Simulated scan of single mutants.
Amino acid sequence: MLSYQHGYHAGNPADLHKHMILAGLLARLTRKPRAISYLETHAGRGLYDLSAPEALKTGEAATGIGRVALPDGPLKDAVDTVRDRHGPSAYPGSPMIARQILRPDDRIALMELHPAENAALKRALGPLGAEVHRRDGYEGVLALSPPRPRKGLVLVDPSYEIKSEYESAAAFALKLVRKWPEASLAIWYPILPEARHTALLAGLRPLRPLVSEVGFDMGKGRGMTGSGMALVNAPFGSREIVAAAETLFD
């Protein structure tokens, strides 16, 4: 999707739900000394300024990271580290969160097709050792799979601006698991009044995902009313990670 830019939505409640689970999964996967691979299909720019005009225009961060006190843990540690380096209005996207948690021997490969977002991603993550690719996310991850190291996690986080993206995300997951059976997948999706995410979950049913959904009100009266994460081949301890993320929205 060449029009979507996440800067308008960075730090909103859906980001907190997604990033709490992502950080928990990465912390769990890096407990053992064996290196892992981390890949993203739609990486964005990796680092956001919540005082930028895009973020201020929507005000969504004020309903998320601006309102919620993060509990002690890997996400809070990542946000604090990034803000120490980049200032109090900085907010890390998923690639930067991963970079804070992963170790030097772990592999990071990021797909981002949007030219401006890709350029920003290279500036933010390239010097930190990440592989940044400008290519279709699904094609790119499939082409790199199975990676070395074989143990790893893939974040699937499209914009869903096209209705067919729900079916496409499910089809991608099925293809990836066939090609890379060891992969764990974290698939984010928005919950909208039209309930389009049901097509995604139906397509994922053969993979028996662990599903986490939370609801929230961003004060707009329309649009996204919640956030979902479907975990495929979820690592041991994922239920506790999901439960901790959901408590942010109790």
Rank of each mutant, 00 (worst) to 15 (best):
S3P: 02
P146Q: 05
K179A: 14
P181K: 15
E240D: 14
G7M: 10
W188A: 03
E213P: 00
D217Y: 02
H42W: 08
G7F: 10
V177C: 05
G87C: 09
M96H: 11
F216S: 13
G137N: 13
M96C: 08
M229H: 05
V82I: 15
D84Q: 12
A199V: 06
L25F: 13
R107T: 07
L121M: 01
A244Q: 14
L200H: 00
R45N: 07
S227E: 09
G228S: 03
R28Q: 15
A171Q: 04
A234L: 10
D77N: 10
A109P: 01
E246V: 06
M218C: 10
P71T: 06
K220G: 14
K76F: 00
P209V: 01
L16D: 06
G137I: 10
A170K: 08
L47A: 04
L121T: 05
R196L: 13
I108L: 15
D157Q: 12
Y38P: 10
I65F: 06
G73T: 03
R123N: 12
A173C: 14
P127Y: 01
P190I: 06
P149H: 05
F172E: 06
A69I: 04
W188E: 09
E131L: 13
L192Q: 14
L200K: 06
M218L: 02
E40I: 07
L26Q: 08
L144D: 15
G66H: 03
E165Q: 12
M218E: 10
P158Q: 12
R85M: 14
L29Y: 04
G126N: 07
G126I: 11
L201A: 00
I97M: 02
L29E: 00
R205K: 13
G11P: 03
E131W: 03
V68Q: 04
G129D: 11
H133P: 04
L201G: 01
Y166M: 11
K18Q: 04
S184R: 00
A55W: 02
R83D: 06
E131N: 08
P88K: 08
L70I: 12
A171S: 13
G126R: 07
Y8I: 11
K122S: 04
V68S: 00
E167P: 03
A245G: 04
D77R: 15
K76E: 12
Y160C: 01
L176E: 03
H17I: 09
